[in-house]
Computed example of a mutant assay.
Amino acid sequence: MTQPPPQREFSDEEIAAIEAEMERLTVDDVLLQTLVTLINLGARKAGLATQPGEEPANRDLEQTRQAIEGARALLPVLEARHGQELAPIKDALARLQMAFVQLSGGTPPPAAPVEEKPEGAGPAQSSGRLWVPGQ
Rank of each mutant, 00 (worst) to 15 (best):
residue 125 Q to G: 03
residue 76 P to E: 14
residue 4 P to K: 11
residue 130 L to G: 02
residue 5 P to D: 05
residue 120 G to H: 13
residue 97 Q to L: 08
residue 24 R to L: 13
residue 7 Q to C: 09
residue 58 N to C: 09
residue 2 T to I: 01
residue 28 D to H: 07
residue 93 L to P: 15
residue 61 L to M: 09
residue 22 M to C: 08
residue 91 D to S: 02
residue 57 A to V: 14
residue 78 L to C: 14
residue 84 Q to W: 15
residue 24 R to P: 07
residue 93 L to E: 11
residue 37 T to W: 05
residue 6 P to R: 10
residue 127 S to R: 11
residue 75 L to S: 05
residue 10 F to K: 06
residue 128 G to F: 14
residue 66 Q to H: 11
residue 83 G to Q: 11
residue 81 R to A: 15
residue 116 E to N: 10
residue 133 P to T: 02
residue 135 Q to P: 10
residue 47 G to T: 06
residue 8 R to Y: 03
residue 20 A to K: 05
residue 90 K to A: 05
residue 114 V to D: 06
residue 80 A to K: 05
residue 59 R to I: 04
residue 7 Q to S: 11
residue 85 E to N: 13
residue 33 Q to Y: 13
residue 21 E to T: 15
residue 63 Q to D: 12
residue 70 G to H: 03
residue 15 I to F: 09
residue 101 V to L: 11
residue 122 G to Q: 01
residue 49 A to D: 13
residue 80 A to W: 00
residue 21 E to P: 02
residue 112 A to K: 06
residue 68 I to Q: 02
residue 22 M to V: 09
residue 64 T to F: 12
residue 131 W to C: 03
residue 109 P to F: 10
residue 30 V to L: 13
residue 100 F to K: 03
residue 113 P to V: 08
residue 74 L to E: 13
residue 48 L to E: 00
residue 38 L to H: 04
residue 4 P to Y: 06
residue 75 L to F: 02
residue 113 P to M: 08
residue 132 V to F: 14
residue 44 R to M: 01
residue 44 R to G: 00
residue 37 T to N: 07
residue 24 R to A: 08
residue 108 P to K: 03
residue 75 L to C: 01
residue 81 R to H: 12
residue 82 H to P: 14
residue 86 L to N: 07
residue 88 P to T: 04
residue 49 A to T: 14
residue 37 T to K: 06
residue 37 T to Y: 03
residue 119 E to C: 03
residue 124 A to Q: 12
residue 22 M to Q: 14
residue 2 T to L: 03
residue 124 A to H: 10
residue 126 S to K: 05
residue 66 Q to C: 13
residue 61 L to Q: 11
residue 119 E to Y: 05
residue 10 F to P: 00
residue 57 A to L: 15
residue 92 A to M: 13
residue 135 Q to A: 10
residue 11 S to C: 02
residue 59 R to F: 03
residue 44 R to L: 04
residue 102 Q to N: 13
